[in-house]
């Protein structure tokens, strides 16, 4: 236990970087995901095709490979803004298709009858979207979107293997120093991760309950 208490500043430093990665790449993935999702449901065939190919390729590439590309190949190609930024780019790119899929399924999940009804009472395209479709889609999208962010929280640990000092990196460092108390260190680091993932999960469950009432 004393290994944990002694190294608490190290863990907190790592936790701060984990949260930073989560927030920055989460925002980035949200923006990129919205763009991809918009492309995928757009009437322009070439945009749709591009977004589909992008989604398929990125979703089937292991995260380790994406981050490996960012940490080793990009600097080799003389693009090196530091490992934190590189890991952030990698996580953003990796997460964006999952965000896009969550958004798309939400919009597709709104029953067609809703749009038809809105159109038939004479609402315009903008009114249909902003008063009928989007309010329902946004509610339906929130739980799967939170699940994507929970996965992202856990995925930030892979960045720790590629020179970013976050929780996983902190765990590696501390276990190197204190090999005798591995189990206590594991539980401490896991607790930090669970703090984020479980609280996000609780929010998701809560939102889901509210949506279920509304539907």
């Amino acid at each position: 236990m004393d290994a944990v208490i002694e190294n608490l500043p190290v863990f907190l430093e790592g936790f701060k970087n984990t949260l930073g990665l989560l927030l920055l790449s989460g925002t980035g993935a949200l923006v990129l995901g919205i763009i991809i999702a918009a492309m995928r449901i757009s009437p322009v065939a070439s945009l749709r095709g591009f977004a589909t190919v992008y989604t398929e390729i990125v979703r089937n590439t292991p995260l380790t490979l994406v981050l490996f590309f960012c940490a080793f190949i990009l600097p080799y190609l003389q693009f090196s803004p530091g490992y934190f930024v590189l890991a952030m780019i990698g996580l953003t790119v990796y997460t964006s298709p999952f965000v896009a899929e969550a958004l798309r399924s939400g919009v597709n999940g709104v029953h067609v009858g809703q749009a038809e009804a809105a159109r038939s009472v004479g609402l315009t395209f903008t009114q249909t979207l902003s008063f009928v479709v989007m309010p329902q889609a946004v509610r339906m999208v929130v739980p799967p979107l939170i699940n994507v962010f929970i996965a992202l929280t856990k995925n930030t640990s892979v960045a720790g293997a590629f020179f970013v000092f976050e929780l996983f990196g902190a765990a590696r460092k501390v276990t190197n120093d204190r090999g005798d108390q591995v189990l206590a260190i594991l539980l401490a680091v896991a607790a930090f991760y669970l703090l984020v993932t479980i609280s996000l999960g609780l929010i998701a469950a809560r939102v889901e309950k509210k949506v279920a009432v509304l539907r």
């Binding site: 929970i150 995925n155 892979v158 999960g201």
Partner: peptide, 11 residues
């Protein structure tokens, strides 16, 4: 489910 796979592997 709330823990990264990588952390589990290491430990």
């Amino acid at each position: 489910r709330g823990m990264p796979v990588l952390l589990m592997m290491l430990f």
